[in-house]
């Protein structure tokens, strides 16, 4: 995935990150913003080092919520897509429910989920699962319903059963669509977990941010934010790489181009 310009993607990323940090520092110098509104990068770095153990512990919680939500949402989403594709009656009845469910902002559901599932991890995993479920279901179902007709004709000529067409042709053919859905899901998964933590929790990066904010520890709040962002980006690129390796026949542009597009 080396760029045509000759600069490796990783190096380009580092340069952009360094540029952003420099811009941040310059803004603080130029405007003279008090540090409790916008701390300088150096102070945030200091907080990162000073509270490393605290940050690590809470990152563990949030990461677990995101990963569990991602796994559950992907599993439920793919299963729903397959069932809805296979059984027309299920599709007819479930599709409107699915669409309507998307009209309800997940954030509005957060208090309800905390009320039902408690302050622990369950309500955050449920939030992440909900937010991941729809993009995965919608993308996979769309892929399943747009199989190249020639392939299904070929399967018909080979006397294949409906199930084996689904398993050997339509499901693999829908994997690239599924992958796009999973990429979107991976990008939004942290939102679900953090919103859940804001509404009510006793650990996690979202909890830490609220807590630090109320105590005026703006540098710690920014440190938590930085860790969250780093985790989200790392997760996205890990999933992206995994998908590219798992689907070697799919010719597509690299992750950077997709984000820039």
């Amino acid at each position: 995935m080396s760029s045509r310009a000759g600069i490796p993607a990783a190096l380009r990323g580092l340069i952009v990150a360094a540029g952003l940090v420099a811009a941040w520092q310059i803004v603080v110098w130029l405007t003279g913003v008090p540090h409790y509104i916008l701390p300088v990068p150096g102070k945030v770095l200091g907080a990162l080092v000073e509270h490393a153990a605290l940050l690590a512990e809470n990152t563990g919680t949030t990461a677990a919520e995101i990963l569990l939500g991602l796994a559950l949402g992907t599993l439920l989403g793919s299963a729903s897509a397959v069932v809805m594709d296979y059984a027309r009656i299920v599709r007819r009845w479930l599709m409107p429910v699915l669409v309507v469910s998307q009209a309800v902002p997940v954030f509005a559901l957060a208090p309800v989920l905390v009320l039902w599932l408690g302050f622990g991890m369950a309500s955050k995993v449920a939030m992440a699962t909900l937010i991941i479920y729809f993009p995965v279901t919608a993308a996979f179902l769309d892929g399943l319903r747009r199989t190249e007709p020639g392939w299904t004709d070929l399967a018909h000529s080979m006397d294949a059963s409906r199930w084996s067409v689904l398993r050997h042709i339509r499901m693999p053919a829908a994997l690239p669509s599924f992958a796009s859905g999973l990429r979107v899901a991976t990008a939004v998964a942290p939102i679900g977990a953090v919103v859940g933590e804001w509404v009510g929790s006793s650990s996690g990066l979202g909890y830490l941010m609220l807590n630090a904010n109320s105590r005026g520890q703006t540098d710690l709040m920014f440190a938590a934010l930085a860790v969250l962002a780093a985790f989200a980006v790392a997760l996205y690129f890990f999933v992206d790489r995994l998908l590219i390796r798992a689907l070697p026949w799919v010719v597509e542009s690299g992750a950077e181009d997709r984000i820039n597009a």
Binding site: E148, G150, S164, L247
Partner: peptide
């Protein structure tokens, strides 16, 4: 068919044995 209809995710050999696997 006019188009080859080879499945892009299978190797050529697996494309040949597709019928058997489908059945």
């Amino acid at each position: 068919a006019q188009q080859d209809l080879l499945l892009p995710w299978l190797t050529v050999a697996d494309n040949l044995t597709l019928g058997a696997r489908l059945r």
